[in-house]
Lab assay of single mutants.
Amino acid sequence: HNLTITQGKLFFHYNPKLCLSEIHKMEEVSGTKGRQERNDIALKTNGDQASCENELLKFSYIRTSFDKILLRWEPYWPPDFRDLLGFMLFYKEAPYQNVTEFDGQDACGSNSWTVVDIDPPLRSNDPKSQNHPGWLMRGLKPWTQYAIFVKTLVTFSDERRTYGAKSDIIYVQTDATNPSVPLDPISVSNSSSQIILKWKPPSDPNGNITHYLVFWERQAEDSELFELDYCLKGLKLPSRTWSPPFESEDSQKHNQSEYEDSAGECCSCPKTDSQILKELEESSFRKTFEDYLHNVVFVPRKTSSGTGAEDPRPSRKRRSLGDVGNVTVAVPTVAAFPNTSSTSVPTSPEEHRPFEKVVNKESLVISGLRHFTGYRIELQACNQDTPEERCSVAAYVSARTMPEAKADDIVGPVTHEIFENNVVHLMWQEPKEPNGLIVLYEVSYRRYGDEELHLCVSRKHFALERGCRLRGLSPGNYSVRIRATSLAGNGSWTEPTYFYVTDYLDVPSNIA
């Protein structure tokens, strides 16, 4: 807008934040220059609390790290170098490059900038070799853009010569660093050979998330399962459950009422301010606690030095998902009996873990797994792929695949051998790939016309006998059925096997 004052003059007093240069501009645009008398524009009460600059400061050096910015700028000295009290560095987070010096300023003089007072450097006698002032900004957020400017702080001049310097606002972004852990990993099994893994992005990506790394490792069953005799009275049979499938998407929606109208769909109840505040506090606490764990609990591995020492970490090797089922080394339970199943799973520490690289999504279907087997899954978020990966501390989750139908069934015939004193040795093959492992066998036998009897055969007993022995049988026709019990439950009964026990007292003698 054009402003013209045809008559009258300007009068400025007691404006401590208004620089004289701005008042002189007002004289020019209003056409009143030359009308004012000496005392109409006070030299001592206008701009006496402001830094009124008329020179431009330029930054000469900028260096960044993930949490620091090192700045240096060209030296500046007023005509009387004693008038320079120091520099004021202003900075704040700036997602967009549209910041002005006066953003967030209120009537009390406060604003949204963080201000650092910096002492002037030592003055050199040689004007050509003056030290460049600077400042190291610490405690910054990774991968965050900051708006920065600097200006001088000078003393009051009796001659009211307006001098000083100020830089333009520059924008500097800190470097990326390792992201925080992925949030809320959930693993479920939808079949006997697959596990579905879902997660949420890290709360602090500290860069642009480029991919996720998912490692999985087959877990050995508890050692007590191999040692305890679950045929003993009072000892509860062990059981394991597989990871249940995901709930429906509708039930997972946030901010939804727990109660549904019987007449149909209901609208979600909005969260109160107290609920939102509580969630923010919980989120802040979780982030602080995660940072504490990362800094205190997890110790970084030592990389190899120039002395030739090897990095103890196993090298990563990509495998196809079809090879995942046989990740671990199978060892027989008892070496003397080769027909026992290889369900003991000690994992070799030198073995390469299978892994998958996930790009542009937060889910993965891990296939080719062994049925009813526990897996430990390790999830890392990465925001750099080359020249070397920059990934987060791992988040861990466990899951067990679903049982395989008929995996616990005894394959092959049940054979028998009759000894003296009416002892019958029953023999059968253990299931080759049971659900988890076989903890015991149930032997059901009966003599024709009598009630059915049951015998429990422990895992250890089966390994020693290759089956079991029935003792003290009365003469007669017998039928026997056997079924295995694994961590997933009972298998199917075998087809009945028949044998006849004679009275050993009636056996004919070869003595003449």
Rank of each mutant, 00 (worst) to 15 (best):
203 S>E: 09
203 S>R: 13
205 P>W: 06
205 P>K: 08
206 N>R: 11
206 N>A: 04
207 G>D: 02
207 G>I: 04
207 G>C: 03
208 N>M: 08
208 N>G: 14
208 N>E: 05
209 I>L: 14
209 I>P: 11
214 V>E: 00
214 V>K: 00
216 W>T: 13
217 E>F: 04
219 Q>A: 03
219 Q>C: 04
219 Q>D: 07
220 A>G: 15
220 A>K: 08
220 A>Q: 13
222 D>S: 11
222 D>P: 07
224 E>A: 10
226 F>M: 09
226 F>V: 12
227 E>Q: 04
228 L>S: 06
229 D>C: 07
234 G>V: 13
235 L>D: 08
235 L>K: 11
236 K>R: 10
236 K>L: 10
236 K>T: 12
236 K>M: 06
238 P>A: 08
238 P>N: 11
241 T>Q: 13
242 W>K: 08
243 S>Y: 05
243 S>C: 06
243 S>D: 07
244 P>Y: 10
244 P>K: 07
245 P>Y: 08
246 F>M: 15
246 F>Y: 13
247 E>Y: 11
248 S>F: 14
251 S>N: 14
252 Q>L: 10
254 H>K: 15
255 N>P: 12
256 Q>N: 13
256 Q>S: 03
257 S>Q: 12
257 S>R: 07
257 S>K: 08
258 E>F: 14
259 Y>H: 04
260 E>T: 11
260 E>R: 14
261 D>F: 13
263 A>S: 09
263 A>L: 11
263 A>W: 02
264 G>Y: 13
268 S>Q: 08
268 S>F: 04
268 S>V: 08
270 P>K: 11
271 K>P: 02
272 T>A: 15
274 S>L: 03
274 S>P: 13
275 Q>F: 03
276 I>T: 13
278 K>S: 13
278 K>T: 05
279 E>C: 02
279 E>F: 12
282 E>L: 13
285 F>Y: 10
286 R>I: 10
286 R>A: 08
286 R>S: 05
286 R>D: 02
287 K>H: 08
288 T>I: 15
288 T>K: 14
290 E>K: 12
290 E>R: 12
290 E>D: 15
290 E>G: 11
290 E>Q: 06
291 D>L: 07
291 D>A: 08
292 Y>P: 06
296 V>C: 15
296 V>H: 06
297 V>C: 06
297 V>Y: 13
297 V>I: 09
297 V>W: 04
298 F>M: 12
298 F>Q: 13
301 R>M: 07
301 R>N: 13
301 R>A: 04
302 K>A: 07
302 K>L: 12
302 K>E: 14
303 T>W: 03
303 T>S: 07
303 T>D: 15
305 S>F: 10
305 S>V: 12
306 G>C: 09
310 E>V: 13
310 E>R: 07
313 R>G: 07
313 R>F: 14
316 R>Y: 01
316 R>L: 09
317 K>D: 07
317 K>R: 12
317 K>V: 06
318 R>T: 09
319 R>H: 14
319 R>G: 14
319 R>Y: 03
320 S>D: 12
320 S>R: 14
320 S>A: 15
321 L>W: 11
323 D>K: 03
324 V>F: 03
324 V>C: 07
326 N>K: 15
327 V>I: 06
327 V>F: 07
329 V>R: 07
330 A>H: 15
332 P>Y: 03
333 T>N: 12
333 T>D: 06
335 A>V: 10
335 A>G: 08
336 A>V: 14
336 A>I: 05
337 F>G: 12
337 F>Y: 11
338 P>L: 06
338 P>K: 06
339 N>K: 12
340 T>D: 08
340 T>A: 08
341 S>D: 13
341 S>K: 13
341 S>N: 14
342 S>R: 14
343 T>L: 10
343 T>W: 09
344 S>N: 08
344 S>W: 11
345 V>K: 10
348 S>R: 15
349 P>M: 04
349 P>S: 08
351 E>S: 14
351 E>T: 14
351 E>R: 13
352 H>Y: 05
352 H>S: 03
353 R>M: 08
355 F>S: 09
355 F>T: 11
355 F>N: 14
356 E>I: 11
356 E>A: 12
357 K>Q: 06
360 N>V: 12
361 K>I: 14
361 K>Q: 11
362 E>T: 10
362 E>K: 07
365 V>L: 12
365 V>T: 06
365 V>E: 06
366 I>F: 13
368 G>V: 08
368 G>F: 07
369 L>H: 00
369 L>P: 00
371 H>C: 05
371 H>K: 04
371 H>N: 05
372 F>P: 00
374 G>V: 08
375 Y>A: 01
375 Y>M: 08
375 Y>G: 00
378 E>L: 06
379 L>Q: 01
380 Q>D: 11
381 A>L: 01
381 A>W: 01
382 C>I: 01
382 C>R: 00
383 N>R: 07
383 N>I: 01
384 Q>F: 09
385 D>A: 15
385 D>K: 10
385 D>H: 13
386 T>R: 12
387 P>T: 14
387 P>I: 07
388 E>A: 12
389 E>K: 13
390 R>H: 02
394 A>Q: 13
394 A>E: 11
396 Y>I: 10
396 Y>P: 10
397 V>Y: 11
398 S>T: 15
398 S>Y: 15
398 S>N: 05
399 A>S: 12
399 A>W: 04
400 R>N: 08
403 P>G: 03
403 P>K: 15
403 P>T: 08
403 P>E: 06
404 E>V: 05
405 A>L: 12
406 K>E: 08
406 K>W: 11
407 A>M: 13
407 A>H: 15
408 D>S: 02
408 D>Y: 01
409 D>L: 12
409 D>A: 03
410 I>T: 03
410 I>G: 04
412 G>S: 15
412 G>L: 10
412 G>Q: 05
413 P>H: 08
415 T>S: 11
415 T>G: 03
416 H>T: 10
416 H>F: 09
418 I>K: 11
418 I>T: 14
418 I>D: 13
419 F>W: 15
420 E>N: 15
420 E>Q: 02
420 E>S: 05
420 E>R: 04
422 N>V: 03
425 H>T: 12
426 L>A: 01
426 L>M: 10
426 L>S: 02
427 M>E: 15
427 M>N: 15
431 P>A: 04
432 K>P: 15
432 K>V: 06
434 P>Y: 03
435 N>I: 00
436 G>A: 15
437 L>P: 08
439 V>F: 07
440 L>P: 00
441 Y>N: 02
441 Y>H: 05
442 E>R: 04
442 E>A: 02
442 E>M: 05
443 V>T: 02
443 V>M: 06
443 V>N: 00
445 Y>D: 00
445 Y>G: 15
447 R>P: 06
447 R>A: 05
448 Y>F: 14
450 D>V: 15
450 D>H: 14
451 E>K: 07
452 E>G: 14
452 E>H: 08
452 E>Q: 05
453 L>D: 05
453 L>M: 06
454 H>D: 12
454 H>I: 11
455 L>C: 10
456 C>G: 01
457 V>M: 13
458 S>E: 07
460 K>C: 14
462 F>M: 10
462 F>S: 04
462 F>V: 10
462 F>T: 03
463 A>V: 05
463 A>S: 09
463 A>D: 09
463 A>H: 07
465 E>M: 02
466 R>T: 04
466 R>M: 08
466 R>H: 12
466 R>I: 09
467 G>R: 07
467 G>T: 05
473 L>S: 01
474 S>E: 15
474 S>A: 10
475 P>D: 04
475 P>L: 06
476 G>M: 00
477 N>A: 10
478 Y>P: 01
480 V>A: 10
481 R>T: 06
481 R>N: 04
483 R>P: 00
483 R>N: 15
484 A>T: 12
485 T>D: 11
486 S>D: 02
486 S>P: 00
487 L>Y: 11
488 A>Q: 03
489 G>R: 08
489 G>D: 04
490 N>Y: 10
494 T>W: 00
495 E>A: 09
496 P>C: 08
496 P>G: 00
497 T>N: 06
498 Y>G: 09
498 Y>S: 13
499 F>L: 14
500 Y>N: 12
500 Y>S: 09
501 V>T: 05
501 V>L: 06
502 T>G: 09
502 T>C: 11
503 D>V: 11
503 D>K: 15
503 D>G: 04
504 Y>R: 10
505 L>M: 02
506 D>K: 09
506 D>M: 13
507 V>M: 14
507 V>H: 00
509 S>F: 08
